[in-house]
Design a binder for these strands. Structure first.
Length: 271
DNA sequence: AACGTCCACAACCGCCGGCTC
DNA sequence: GGAGCCGGCGGTTGTGGACGT
């Protein structure tokens, strides 16, 4: 389909932003709020493309940004999230307050990739370099909830049979070829997700919800898909229905250190 | 000091999905 | 249902500074 250019390139500045441009943008957004990026440059008196303004604001000027070096905890969280989500930088950024997708993407490409390589881990697949690819093809799935060492995890991944409390998929389950199974198997050899597929009796479309450590009720549960908090209707911002289970100690599942409720693989389907 | 190379990161580009008409 | 608009995302590039020779 034909698309008009997002801006008239002949009359827009490019390259690094000047202090004056930053000030104009900040002043305009403070006065009028975010949104309508297409018309913003004209309204704000900026010779910039709307997309450029949006990026500048989101990645650099936003007041809630956390500048400075990534902590070791952030490093590890990024690695774990990347192993699960792949290059979904915006989703990863959603779990790191004050960090932007662009920042995390750059940080990944410059620091973490190298860090993983130095550990002998393929940053794309999160598998040990020279890992036997045949293992990926294996159909038996069991993420043991009790496995602690990486070796043990890998053993389970490679078809070690059923572990207790983990993701258990029977022989006749069609779920075995579900996207999350494949994704998780391929990308997360070292990640103890303690995931569990929700029972097939659920009729509604559901999604994985993540609860922060301090969260006690539904109102503070965050949709993993859209990063919004579901309202009392138990629908989050992306319109998915939400199934909240009891406390994480029994029916919730600890996900990357965050207590979670029921997981449905469809919410994790990759593009 | 001068030059070349590497690195980090801001910014750009093209594409996609959702929404509206 | 299709066309167009818009915001958003992910990949890539450009550039300035750091570092090594």
């Amino acid at each position: 389909m034909g698309r008009s250019p997002c801006c008239e390139k002949a009359h827009t500045n490019k390259g690094a932003w000047t202090k004056e441009e930053d000030d104009r943008l900040i002043a305009y957004i403070r006065a009028h709020g975010e949104g309508c990026w297409r018309s913003l440059p004209k309204s704000a008196g900026l010779l910039r493309c709307g997309k450029s303004c949006r990026l500048r604001w989101i990645n650099y000027l936003r007041p809630d940004l956390k500048r400075g070096n990534f902590t070791e905890e952030e490093d590890e969280l990024i690695i774990k999230l990347h192993s699960l989500l792949g290059n979904k930088w915006s989703l990863i950024a959603g779990r790191l307050p004050g960090r932007t997708d662009n920042e995390i993407k750059n940080y990944w490409n410059t620091h973490i990739r190298r860090k993983l390589l130095s550990r002998g881990i393929d940053p794309t697949t999160h598998r040990p370099i020279n890992h036997d690819p045949a293992i990926i093809i294996n159909n038996n799935i069991s993420f043991s909830g009790t496995a602690s060492s990486k070796d043990e995890d890998r053993k389970n991944m490679s078809g070690g049979g059923g572990g207790g409390g983990g993701l258990i998929v029977g022989k006749e389950e069609k779920m075995i070829s579900s996207p999350v199974n494949i994704i998780t198997k391929e990308r997360c050899p070292d990640l103890n997700l303690e995931l569990r597929i929700s029972p097939p009796t659920y009729q509604e479309p559901i999604l994985m919800m993540m609860k922060s450590d301090s969260d006690e009720d539904v109102s503070s549960t965050v949709c993993f898909a859209c990063s919004t908090v579901p309202q009392k209707s138990k629908e989050c911002g992306c319109g998915n229905s939400v199934i909240i289970t009891g406390s994480s100690s029994n029916s919730g599942y600890d996900f990357l250190g965050l207590k979670t409720a029921v997981l449905d693989y469809r919410s994790l389907e990759m593009k």
